[in-house]
Simulated assay, not measured.
Amino acid sequence: MKEEHHEKGGRWYVEEDGKTIAEMTYINSGATRFIIDHTEVDESLRGQGVGYKMVGKAVERAREHKLKILPLCPFAKSVFDKKTEYADVLF
């Protein structure tokens, strides 16, 4: 899994043959939080936990940088609802 981070936000993603086949994007929202706004996983990766892994990477980043996450993406929100161990980074 690759990641890109820049001033306005970033993404975690999986590429195959130069094509993005899974992606979760976020937007920075102030100095202390970011918003997960979109997650998409190609059918070829469904059922492999790739979406959960991307959310896990976001949680790692939030913990490392002492940030909070607002999961506006329905998929990310559902993961946070299921994974109570991520509650420490929820906004």
Rank of each mutant, 00 (worst) to 15 (best):
M1D: 03
K2P: 05
E3C: 02
E3S: 14
E3L: 13
E3G: 07
E3I: 13
E3V: 04
H6N: 15
H6P: 02
E7V: 12
E7S: 11
K8L: 14
G9L: 07
G9C: 08
G9S: 10
G9A: 08
G10P: 13
W12L: 05
Y13V: 09
Y13H: 06
E15S: 13
E15A: 04
E15Y: 09
E15N: 06
E15R: 08
D17Q: 13
G18D: 11
G18T: 13
T20M: 09
I21C: 02
A22H: 01
M24T: 06
M24P: 00
T25K: 05
T25S: 07
T25C: 10
Y26R: 02
N28Q: 10
G30Y: 09
A31E: 11
T32Y: 14
T32L: 02
R33W: 04
F34R: 05
I35K: 05
I35Q: 05
D37K: 14
H38P: 05
T39S: 04
E40H: 05
E40W: 02
E40M: 01
V41M: 02
D42F: 03
E43Q: 13
S44T: 15
S44Q: 14
R46P: 01
G47K: 03
V50N: 13
V50A: 07
G51E: 01
Y52S: 02
Y52V: 03
K53G: 09
K53R: 06
K53S: 11
M54K: 01
G56M: 04
K57C: 08
K57A: 14
E60K: 03
R61H: 15
A62G: 15
R63A: 08
R63M: 10
R63W: 01
H65R: 15
H65D: 15
K66F: 12
K66I: 15
K66E: 12
L67M: 13
L67S: 05
I69R: 00
P71F: 07
L72N: 12
C73K: 00
P74S: 07
A76H: 04
K77N: 10
S78M: 05
S78W: 03
V79T: 11
F80Q: 00
K82Q: 11
K82I: 08
K83R: 12
K83H: 10
E85M: 06
Y86L: 06
V89F: 04
V89S: 07
L90R: 13
